[in-house]
Amino acid sequence: MNRSIRVLSLYEGFFAGGARILHTDLIAGLHNAGEQQHDVLSIASAVRRDSTVQHLRRDPRYVRLAASGVGVTSLGRTGGVEAPAPSTYTDRQLRMASNLVGRADVILSLKEQPLGLLLALRKRGLMPDRPVAACLHRSDPTHSGSALSWLSEAAASGLLTAEISCARSTSDAYQPYLSPATGRFVIGNGIDTDRFRPGTEGERAAMRRTLGVPPAAPVIVFAARFDLMKDPGLFLRSVALHSAQRPETHYLVCGAGMTRENDAFRALLDESGVTDATNLHALGIRDDMPEIYRIADIVALTSAFGEASPLCLLEGAASGATPVTTDVGDSALTVDGIGFVTTHEATAIAPTWTDVLARRPELRERSIAARARFGRDRMIAEYAAILRGLVDNRRAAA
């Protein structure tokens, strides 16, 4: 086959989150390499999540894809916390989806939620015969709601050809819900190390001025959406303990719902013991995370469950920060040799932050020396090979 293969990615919607950031970077890289032609079908054009409404055309992931020449089509729905059930799609939406699927050689489902759309197509006799791979990014399938049953149904029926996990913990967690015939692959996450890099003195000074952070103040960054999985309460309790000992430290909280306009976030602030004297910057969704990571001394993760291979740890470390994380998913493996793993207790996290700040020059050099292992080129090449194999195998069996 001489022509480039055509790949359609299914998104539940466009909203802030590591899986969407990673997948967008992946398909933009594959598309720009010239051997594959990528398009996206988004089920929703706007999504209500994490106390925010996030619109497709304003989303940085959409902007990135459009700039890369990747076509994006939406079914025009409004998404929420739960993915739409197969029975809720209209005839018009199914015809539109069937047409797009039919133009592709292979389908990538970003996580398991969009599989409900493919099941709806199959029930109506509108699902073309195409290989389908689910790109999985969690280590706790039971928190996926009804979408987990859609994954199992798709695997049992043969609709799902393969799963591609971003971490070994993810692949192991999903294995019981798959058919023995389902192909299984693990491709570790990678990032754009040209974007996520240590800053120059001038860049760091400019960002500190922008955020109101003094030149020599320690900085701890928490990049996460406002969600139980991320356990923002644990992070804030750790801030309360740490700031009592290191009051000069500044804490930058970034992500959907991480603003004082969110009533639930304000309630957590009150419960945690964080006071007005604490240098806490609740920044919400940011489009300048590379610049923020460049001024970080520590990138913190306090997740309770669900993580696989968290991007924030890679992005922060590639920028020179030291990752400090709870032990969830492949986080411990991710920070091996450059960071620290703690228990899920503020009394363990706050002292670890203090120890890291005391060893900052040494630990910064460790992170910078490990940058080569974070790059995305390997990830893109491995995905390209798997997609080509799925298409070739289907054609050989036809």
Rank of each mutant, 00 (worst) to 15 (best):
S4Y: 04
A16L: 13
G17P: 01
L26A: 09
A28D: 04
A28Y: 00
V40E: 02
A46H: 03
A46C: 11
S51E: 08
Q54P: 08
H55S: 14
R57I: 12
D59L: 07
V63D: 15
R64C: 07
T78Q: 13
E82R: 09
A83T: 02
A85F: 11
S87Y: 07
L94T: 05
V101S: 10
R103Y: 07
E112R: 00
E112I: 08
Q113G: 00
P114R: 04
L117S: 04
A120C: 01
A120N: 03
P128T: 06
D129Y: 04
R130N: 08
C135K: 01
S144H: 06
G145L: 04
S152M: 05
E153P: 06
S157A: 11
G158A: 10
G158H: 05
L160G: 09
T161R: 13
C166W: 00
Q175P: 01
T182W: 06
G183H: 08
I187T: 06
R195Q: 13
R208M: 14
A216F: 06
F222S: 04
K230W: 11
L234R: 00
R246E: 12
P247H: 05
T249V: 06
Y251T: 12
L252M: 12
V253P: 04
A267F: 00
D270V: 11
S272P: 00
V274L: 13
V274I: 07
A277F: 02
A277S: 15
I285E: 11
I285V: 15
M289S: 03
E291W: 02
I292L: 14
D297E: 11
A304F: 03
L314C: 05
A317E: 07
S319V: 09
A321M: 09
A321L: 05
T322Y: 04
S331H: 02
L333I: 10
D336L: 10
G337A: 06
I338G: 02
G339H: 02
A348D: 13
T354F: 05
T354M: 14
V356I: 11
R359C: 15
P361G: 08
E362H: 12
L363Q: 05
R364V: 09
E365M: 08
R371C: 04
G375L: 02
D377P: 04
I380L: 13
A385Q: 14
I386E: 11
L387V: 12
L390H: 12
V391E: 12
A397S: 14
A398F: 03
